[in-house]
Design a binder for these strands. Structure first.
Lengths: 180, 180
DNA sequence: TTAAAACATGTATTTATTTACATGTTTTAA
DNA sequence: TTAAAACATGTAAATAAATACATGTTTTAA
């Protein structure tokens, strides 16, 4: 689904926290922010260029080693404003995309032989995911100090954890239904 | 995110259950399937055409009233096969897109004045959503008979309900944190 | 009986996103 | 010291999706 340019705001938000390169921004989607959004560098670099043309961001050139030039981007006043306006605007809800759920929707027969394989596969995935998220939380927020310093971030991780717990208990519930 | 043509399989799945028109298919995304996927008729009509060219589906012409011609689509054997292959294939996970979560991620300060407004707005939304889903479940699955006849569909609705419950309790948790 | 809502099917344009192509530098670990 | 991994930045081509444009019919309720 072609979203309404939310990526722009994600980049603004990330740059507001810390000035960084397109490469750095792309990496963010591999770790925690990847829990709820994805983007490739091939989407990020051109967008940064357009955002700069729109005066939302600007960049400085840093040289690493002998020749390697990095473009370190940072927010302009306009970018700050644009980001804050977005924060204040009402949030639209988009349907989540989960291929497993999609498949399940079409399994009409509770006795379908596909079901048990599909479910145990999902259980494996979500158990691993939950463990990974919990480890991530412990690593990033060992004490309340870190939570206070990065409140929203901690809430988002907590949400991902709650989501996985809910997913797991839902899968368990299905298993119990099937055993009868 | 340009998905890997999952819409194709959704249409196949919907057509497998019941032969129907593009208009009918488009309407499906307004009700229950809209919980986890979206599509417009302007995406559906061309896709149906392509799927027909690929021999996954075929159509018959039905005339309504004096002049109105409807194209009623149905699966071919190839379409059946393609759909079942998809069901059996491993499911990829895509990051859910929730703009509220996205915004929250960037609120570093627990004392931000934006927070309480944002959260109460979300609470309103998710409470309404939960009530709506629960009503939908009662309407579609009043007894176990309906659940058995449409097992996957009921699971998906239950999942949406669990998701909303989880969302709500997460929001409540945040509120409690804020009150301290 | 008539106006609005719902039914029905498309196309065009723009934007978003993925995958692949393309190139070169610096750091790290064997 | 050298090879692999990570850093760094782009472009091209194809597909996916949203929004707007465009048209006409049938049903329903006032």
């Amino acid at each position: 689904m072609a979203q309404k340019n939310r990526l722009k705001y994600i980049l603004l938000g990330l740059l507001k926290e810390k000035k960084q390169t397109g490469y750095d921004l792309a990496k963010s989607f591999d770790s925690d922010i990847g829990e709820f959004w994805n983007a490739n560098h091939s989407q990020i670099y051109p967008l940064l260029k357009r955002m700069e043309q729109a005066s939302l961001i600007d960049h400085e050139l840093d040289t690493v080693g002998e020749k390697l030039e990095k473009k370190t981007y940072f927010l302009t006043a306009l970018g700050q404003q644009s980001f804050e306006d977005w924060l204040k605007s009402p949030s639209e809800m988009g349907g989540a995309h989960d291929e497993f759920i999609l498949k399940l929707y079409f399994i009409n027969d509770a006795r379908s032989p596909l079901l048990s394989t599909m479910i145990s596969e999902q259980e494996k995935y979500h158990n691993a995911k939950l463990a990974q998220l919990q480890a991530q939380f412990k690593a990033k927020f060992p004490t309340d100090k870190e939570v206070q310093a990065n409140f929203g971030h901690s809430l988002v991780l907590r949400h991902a954890i709650e989501r996985e717990k809910g997913y797991r208990s839902w899968l368990e519930e299905i298993n119990q239904t099937l055993e009868n």
